[in-house]
Amino acid sequence: MSGDVVVPAHNGVRRGRPPQTPEQADEVRARIELATAAVFTEHGSRGLSVARIIERAGISRPTFYRYFGNAEQPLHSLLTLSNEGLVGGIRDALARSFEPVQLGIAIIDAYLEWARGHGPMLRPVFAELHDPASPVSGYREEAFDDIRALVRAKFTELGRPLPSPLDLDTALQTCEYVVYRVSAAAHPGSEPDPADVTEARLTMIRSVLVTLGNRADVERALTVPGIFDERV
């Protein structure tokens, strides 16, 4: 009888690498995403490549392709988590707020908490916000759409007139710009100066209250220590 003889493995189980557990698969996926974040931080989305990611992650190319089809897919996972963090943080803050001044402050603190969790990766995120060729731009618009809807729903719940689209976008873009300024001023690889973050928080609170609030809101804010204190 000619041909190769196939010898089955013991008990009919094929020899070779044992299958990964779900926990092991999650660990490898997380390692790839962390490496992608590092490459994105250094090179931006245009500098992403499978070669750079696997070198940073310390894995083989076949291992990478077991989890992702190209270099952009893990970046999309990161941006999805980023959006969920920002929108979810603002959603939770709005749910805890029942007074307009408190509402504005809660939105700011949620935004700052989101920014704090990004570390150095915040720089390329902000650098590509308005680049139509970058996936960051699309995710930013999705997040803004969700935040707009949340704010309008909260205004309706409080029985207040809805903010105009221009006022709402101005408030959101002011927050975006101030956080960008603070992150850009920090030394590469380091956290922003706490004093700068404190001042940025107050700038954002004042801007949002004046843009989205009414006269009664501003008068109420004048009684809150630290927001509109006179400067020496």
Rank of each mutant, 00 (worst) to 15 (best):
1 M>R: 11
1 M>D: 11
3 G>W: 08
3 G>Q: 09
5 V>T: 13
6 V>A: 13
7 V>N: 08
8 P>N: 10
9 A>W: 10
11 N>D: 15
15 R>F: 13
15 R>H: 12
22 P>V: 07
26 D>A: 15
26 D>Q: 13
27 E>S: 13
28 V>W: 01
32 I>Q: 03
32 I>C: 05
33 E>W: 01
34 L>W: 05
36 T>Q: 05
42 E>P: 00
44 G>M: 01
45 S>N: 00
47 G>H: 04
47 G>C: 05
50 V>Y: 04
50 V>H: 02
58 G>Y: 06
60 S>R: 09
61 R>H: 10
62 P>E: 04
63 T>I: 04
64 F>M: 02
68 F>A: 06
70 N>F: 05
71 A>M: 00
72 E>Q: 14
75 L>V: 08
76 H>T: 11
79 L>E: 05
80 T>K: 12
82 S>F: 09
82 S>R: 07
84 E>M: 12
88 G>L: 10
89 G>F: 07
92 D>T: 14
95 A>V: 11
95 A>W: 10
100 P>Q: 05
101 V>D: 04
102 Q>F: 04
105 I>C: 04
108 I>Y: 00
108 I>R: 00
109 D>P: 00
111 Y>K: 03
114 W>F: 15
115 A>W: 02
119 G>S: 09
120 P>E: 08
122 L>D: 00
122 L>Q: 03
127 A>K: 04
128 E>T: 00
139 Y>W: 15
140 R>S: 13
140 R>F: 15
140 R>N: 14
144 F>P: 00
145 D>P: 02
149 A>S: 15
152 R>N: 12
155 F>E: 06
158 L>F: 14
158 L>V: 07
160 R>N: 06
160 R>V: 03
161 P>R: 11
162 L>G: 08
163 P>M: 08
166 L>T: 11
167 D>F: 04
167 D>P: 02
167 D>G: 05
168 L>I: 09
168 L>Y: 10
170 T>E: 10
170 T>M: 12
173 Q>G: 05
173 Q>L: 12
174 T>M: 10
174 T>H: 12
174 T>G: 11
181 R>F: 08
183 S>N: 08
185 A>Y: 07
185 A>D: 12
185 A>V: 03
188 P>D: 11
192 P>D: 03
193 D>A: 14
194 P>C: 09
197 V>K: 03
200 A>K: 02
200 A>E: 01
203 T>Y: 09
204 M>K: 01
207 S>H: 11
208 V>G: 00
209 L>R: 02
211 T>P: 02
211 T>D: 05
212 L>N: 02
212 L>I: 06
216 A>R: 15
217 D>I: 03
217 D>R: 02
220 R>L: 10
226 G>C: 07
227 I>L: 13
230 E>M: 09
231 R>M: 13
